[in-house]
Design a protein around this nucleic acid. Structure first.
Lengths: 167, 167
DNA sequence: TCCAACTGATTGCAATATGCAACTTGTTGT
DNA sequence: ACAACAAGTTGCATATTGCAATCAGTTGGA
């Protein structure tokens, strides 16, 4: 049934995530905790078109990176959640952020999270993944919130306090 | 001059590498040591088309991920080399391989390298990057060759010796 | 010299994907 | 009843991909 170009793990990952938008959607669900279509559509920096977002969500559901549940507060609303497979993209996204921070013209506000995650190392990534398992898979809540830490740092930078230390 | 969608490091990385072929080309130069157009064209598992390869090489040169030098043995031949920026993609490629190995139908032969690199950890990645700096940037040769280790393991698996240990 | 094989591409064309704006169907709160 | 909102879909212009054929310069051998 499958029409894969090859059995190489890098290639197969690329066949799923190798386009301009899939990882943007996952990033927004993961770091921005955007769970509804309209949140993903309107509040992203990059401005994805609604038909593209629709197609990507459909594909990510089919690939098993997202699941969707009805929202009890609104019959037409759906809540998109990360699966374990998507949560395991955390190290990949961290490395993408780390590379981008060194080799592309990132903005300070939008790269502070990447910096903290890079500096936090594998332990912080694991803590973050546990937190995502709590948020998206219903696992028990971890003691402290990496997401809140990241958000706090982001807000501090936006507020102009640049005393975070550069790397 | 630049028309970026946003200053987010993940987005900017995606704008450079977020397509189906760029990382395949870099993978082949990096792990397969393919340095000429024809080597990249013909010997890859996935079968890239020549116009796409041509366009990708042009883009990767422009983005500063590859450089090209004339080949003394043939006036029309060029040798493509990785830049430091491309060499720093090693951790990203390792994470892609690790994710693909867990969540896609990889083949054993083509994923043994990914397994070894994942198990080798950051020290092995650093060793590998030093070796790439030797091969592509003219840095001094490291004592042992990670590339040879990976290739040996690959050949052992192809030969049918599956005593490598699974993860 | 002539010519076949090899070099890194380019061209033409059909199929697919993207980007944008408008529209649709159904839901909710007032 | 009705305006605002939810999650998409549709139409259409443009851009990108995939595939086969082709091209011009280079090289080595007969």
């Amino acid at each position: 049934m499958d029409q894969h170009r090859s059995g190489c793990p890098i290639n197969l990952t690329l066949e799923i995530l190798g386009d301009g938008w899939s990882l943007i959607v996952i990033r927004d669900v993961m770091f921005g905790n955007r769970r509804h279509f309209r949140e993903l559509l309107g509040q992203s920096e990059e401005g994805i078109a609604s038909n593209i977002l629709s197609a990507r969500l459909k594909r990510l559901l089919a690939e098993g990176l997202l699941v969707k549940h009805p929202d009890p507060t609104h019959r037409q609303k759906s809540i998109y959640s990360l699966t374990e497979a998507a949560i395991q993209l955390v190290p990949l996204l961290v490395q993408m952020g780390a590379w981008g921070r060194r080799h592309t013209p990132v903005s300070r506000e939008l790269s502070i999270r990447a910096q903290l995650l890079e500096e936090g190392g594998p332990q912080m990534w694991a803590d973050f993944m546990d937190e995502l398992r709590h948020i998206h898979l219903g696992a028990p809540a971890p003691e402290k919130s990496v997401l809140a830490e990241l958000q706090d740092a982001y807000l501090r930078v936006v507020a102009g306090q640049t005393d975070v230390g550069t790397t």
